[in-house]
Design a protein around this nucleic acid. Structure first.
Length: 303
DNA sequence: ATTCGCACCTGAGTGC
DNA sequence: TGCACTCAGGTGCGAA
């Protein structure tokens, strides 16, 4: 469940279930799902057992659950990760890699199943470091308590730029970075050090909305055009979030296993051979970064 | 210091 | 039915 809207759907679903819960069990079915875990002195299991979860936070496509130990459980879904909440005793999910058992003060026992087909995602316990700007590390929904974890973020997320729906996102910083980028605009949008949360689907959708060719040099965009692109990115992410994210199949689901509806609203991604909604020209798919780029050859010309 | 290609993986779908 | 091949929403590493 990869891009920002889908990850936020997972975060929002986790928050009420895991906040204030204590980890009472850890089962690792595939060690490869711990690829981002750096075993410091203690193992993944030892660092989680008995710890209380304080919140569910997200920056871009990274999720983390701050713990009462001062560290955090980092979750990245990769290309195919899912976090599913299950009642203990439920039938095992296919491709289950890690399971946590939580005990919540009011909801009781709960399984958190980390399912991942391709194993590009992972769970890890990581230290928290202070944000360089002193602002919140990510988005955690409501609740202003000024707790210690709020202005911190996992060390492995520190290099990730803020995402465009983060209240602390700086448009002027983004525009300045973009103006210095010596690469195509789509590469820049996908670079999580420049702006986070955007992946292949929403990059294509935003570029379609802003009528920009994916290989247009980033630095060649006028300030007005770049500003319009950022507005398009925000609009699309918000609309996708409101629809519960994009699902083509059962792979991209919320914590209850339900799909989102934004796939019906896609204008470019996956629509190769279908007419552009604006001009009727057939949408084209081109090979790009070992994937595809979808665009309207008439509305989105290289300039 | 940047930018770019590729490795990391499994499973579903297609065509022969 | 089986096999070879293509495709998939991400990230990080090393090489240029």
């Amino acid at each position: 469940m990869p891009e920002l809207p889908e990850v936020e759907v997972v975060r929002a679903g986790l928050q009420p279930a895991v906040t204030d819960a204590v980890v009472t069990g850890v089962e690792i079915f595939d060690e490869r799902s711990l690829r981002r875990h750096v075993p410091a002195a203690e193992s993944f299991t030892a660092q989680l057992s008995g710890r209380r979860i304080l919140a569910a936070v997200r920056r871009g496509k990274f999720l983390w659950l701050p713990l009462d130990s001062g560290r955090a459980l980092v979750i990245h879904l990769g290309m195919s990760g899912q976090v599913l909440l299950r009642t203990p005793g439920a039938a095992a999910d296919r491709m289950l890699r890690i399971r946590l058992t939580l005990d919540h003060p009011t909801h009781g026992e709960l399984w958190v199943n980390f399912v991942d087909q391709r194993i590009f995602g992972s769970m890890a316990v990581d230290s928290l470091v202070a944000t360089t700007d002193g602002l919140p590390g990510g988005y955690w929904g409501t609740g202003e308590t000024d707790a210690a974890w709020q202005r911190r973020l996992p060390s492995q997320v520190a290099h990730i730029a803020r995402d465009p729906i983060d209240a602390s996102f700086s448009s002027s910083t983004f525009l300045a970075v973009l103006a210095r980028k010596n690469t195509g605009i789509k590469r820049a949008l996908l670079d999580q050090n420049v702006i986070s949360g955007i992946g292949n689907i929403y990059a294509d959708e935003a570029l379609f909305a802003a009528r920009i060719h994916y290989e247009q040099p980033a630095a060649s965009l006028s300030r007005a055009k770049a500003t319009a692109l950022l507005a398009a990115v925000r609009a699309i992410l918000h609309r996708a979030l409101a629809e519960g994210g994009t699902s083509f199949d059962a792979q991209y689901v919320n914590v209850n296993g339900q799909s989102g509806y934004f796939a019906h609203s896609l204008e470019a991604y996956g629509r190769q051979g279908a007419p552009c909604s604006r001009c009727g020209t057939l949408i084209v798919r081109e090979q790009f970064m070992n994937r595809g780029s979808h665009f309207c050859p008439r509305c989105q010309r290289l300039r």
